[in-house]
Amino acid sequence: MEVLIAIIIVLMIAGSIYTLHSRDLLSAVISYGITGFGLVICFLLLQAPDLAIAQILVEIITLIIMISVIRISTREDVTERSTIHIKGVRYINMRTAAYIVTGAVFMIALLYFFMDATVLLDPFGVHQVRMSAAYMEVGAAITGSANLVAGVLFDFRAYDTLGEATILITAVIGILTVLRLKGRR
């Protein structure tokens, strides 16, 4: 189980690195799909069917919108001015090299701090519940909902769900605002 998920996450990492480096935007978006569908499989393996359904559909709709945006363009990635040519030999220019070194140091430092900070927490497959103990013990009996996630979403934390739906509405109104034809009278 752990090995299987690890393999999928490695694939997701590979997919996302390809996404960020591919020359063609369409293939970038499609390899981004690898990441998304890998996530769906992880959800299924980790016993979260609700999320798997939601994620796969959201993934598809996001891809449709992204492709509709990309289709208006030339689909080519912008050129990265990271290398310079001197007498036919490619050199990475100094500024880029400096960026790469700082970036790498920063990332490794973050990773180190993350590992250092989380080493004492519950390992994979063990989870101490505190707040959700009530949800699991009496949630089904009190709310009457067999699906505990629905019980949490619509009864214990219905206010959260109101916020979530409001975020969607906010984004829709925002998109309608941004895509108006003319801004000023």
């Binding site: 934390r157 959260d160 916020g163 979530e164 906010t170 605002t177 941004v178 108006r180």
Partner: peptide, 30 residues
């Protein structure tokens, strides 16, 4: 977590409001 959600409502609406003029400058700032 509720604080996070309402924070998102506030900031997402402010993203849209910053771009309200939909001229070049507003869009880039947003």
């Amino acid at each position: 977590f509720n604080m996070f959600i309402f924070l998102e409502i506030a900031v997402i609406s402010s993203y849209a409001l910053v771009a309200f003029g939909i001229e070049r400058e507003e869009l880039e700032a947003s």
